[in-house]
């Protein structure tokens, strides 16, 4: 089955390796991801904190485009986009006055939406539509011996906790177990990475990142797998500034979960963007390539 993908801004830039590996991995699983044409920003946390109507309308525009393409599902690999698109959908059920304003605004742009497109996270699609058994059956290069901390982040399970448990999401654990990697116990899995505070209050965000990474290392993880482009940047890109405080001699690789699945499925490394990781993954992943 082919899915319609809402990439979102970060998947095309600061986490382009995540976007690349998401497409390659889905293809290796026999499913396609085709990009929504003319998609626009979901609004993210910044827009909804500025103008709720426009934030919802901009997100709903993407859902309307998906509907006009005949899609029943719109898939995103970003936790932030996932929440914003779902918030837009939620107003079709819960906020009739907001929905009326948004519908009118969409109408003025020649668009129509009825609230029916299902917003889904890529990880959940892989788990529930493709399934662990089918993934296992396609694994060609077992990741046996690799210890992974599966970091879910916040918005994959909050505030919408109908798919995953709000504080104990497990979708990544299940997917990674299909590769035969050892998924270590990781109590920080759904803690906050700091999000946009990494720009506005780096001191605060670095404190959060430090505790998450320290936990991963204490649990024996060789690398951290993520399901959100912003988590990826926050956990991966600022390690140099905290390494001395952590007392680490070597950094912790942070990889989109799709890269690990892709390696197990024997997708060529260049199609997974492994060379785009800011922390060298060679030391922990070379033996599986």
């Amino acid at each position: 089955m082919s899915y319609l993908l809402y990439p979102g801004c970060a998947l095309e830039a600061s986490s382009s390796h995540y976007g690349k590996s998401a497409k390659a991995t889905m293809a290796a699983l026999g499913s396609g991801l085709r990009e929504l044409d003319q998609w626009s920003c979901c609004g993210a946390t910044a827009y909804v904190g500025t103008d709720e109507d426009k934030a919802v309308a901009y997100s709903a525009r993407n859902l309307a485009l998906a509907q006009s393409e005949g899609a029943t599902d719109l898939v995103t690999a970003c936790n932030g986009c996932y929440v914003m698109l779902r918030k837009a959908n939620a107003c079709w059920n819960a906020s009739p006055t907001l929905q009326a304003r948004v519908s009118k605004a969409l109408g003025s742009a020649g668009l129509k939406y009825d609230g029916s497109v299902r917003v889904r996270h890529l990880a959940e699609v892989m788990l529930n539509d493709i399934g662990v058994e089918a993934i296992s059956a396609r694994v060609k290069a077992s990741l046996s011996g690799l210890k992974v901390a599966a970091y879910h982040g916040c918005q994959i399970s909050r505030p919408f906790d109908d798919v995953e448990n709000a504080e104990r999401p497990t979708v990544l654990n299940k997917l990674l177990a299909a590769t035969e990697a050892e998924v270590v116990p990781f109590p920080m899995t759904a803690k906050c990475c700091g999000g946009m505070l990494m720009t506005t209050r780096r001191d605060v965000a670095l404190g959060l990142v430090k505790s998450i990474l320290a936990c991963a290392r204490a649990k024996g993880a060789d690398c951290v797998a993520v399901a959100c482009p912003l988590c990826c940047v926050n956990l991966e890109c600022y390690q140099e500034s905290i390494r001395s405080e952590l007392g680490w001699d070597k950094p912790m690789p942070v990889v989109p979960f799709t890269q690990l699945l892709g390696i197990a499925l024997d997708v060529p490394p260049e199609e997974l963007g492994l060379d785009q990781c800011m922390v060298d993954v060679e030391p922990v992943l070379a033996r599986y390539l």
């Binding site: 626009s40 309308a57 605004a105 742009a109």
Partner: peptide, 14 residues
């Protein structure tokens, strides 16, 4: 991004 007019129309409406 070719759909700027669409976003502008949405923005004006709101």
């Amino acid at each position: 991004f070719a759909a700027k007019d669409q976003l502008a129309a949405i923005s004006r409406s709101l």
